[in-house]
């Protein structure tokens, strides 16, 4: 996780624990138009620790980022490879993205 400075806690209206929100900084990912760059970063491989607001795109291996803490069922888009995904929780608690067509 490169920045993910915790900024706010977003109230949850559904009884679930509130979500943390994050300020995203541009990490130098240049492969999308400027306005979208802070939502993506290069992945450093298996040792790259992801933040609670990040998942790896299984198609192109770019890290997808959100202002909000991600939860199972969230939809995310990978602009560098044009894929749409849903966030899922693995048995060990890790969050991953699964492609939806």
């Amino acid at each position: 996780m490169s920045d993910a400075a915790e900024a706010l806690v977003e109230a949850a209206g559904d009884g679930a624990a509130p979500r943390r929100t994050f300020e995203l900084e541009d990490t130098g990912f240049l492969e999308v138009p400027k306005r979208w760059r802070r939502f993506y970063r290069h992945w450093g491989g298996p040792d790259d620790e992801l933040g609670p607001n990040e998942v790896v795109c299984p198609v192109c291996k770019v890290v997808i980022r959100s202002h909000r803490e991600l939860r199972p069922g969230d939809k995310v888009y990978c602009m560098p490879c044009m894929s749409r995904m849903v966030v899922v929780a693995r048995p060990d608690g890790r969050l991953e993205a699964e492609v939806i067509y």
């Binding site: 198609v59 192109c60 560098p80 490879c81 894929s83 067509y101």
Partner: peptide, 18 residues
């Protein structure tokens, strides 16, 4: 960097069709 777009287009187009 270019190949990401090409790969993603192919998989997603075929995925939707299938």
């Amino acid at each position: 960097a270019d190949e990401r777009r090409h790969l993603g287009f192919g998989e997603n187009d075929l995925g939707r069709r299938l």
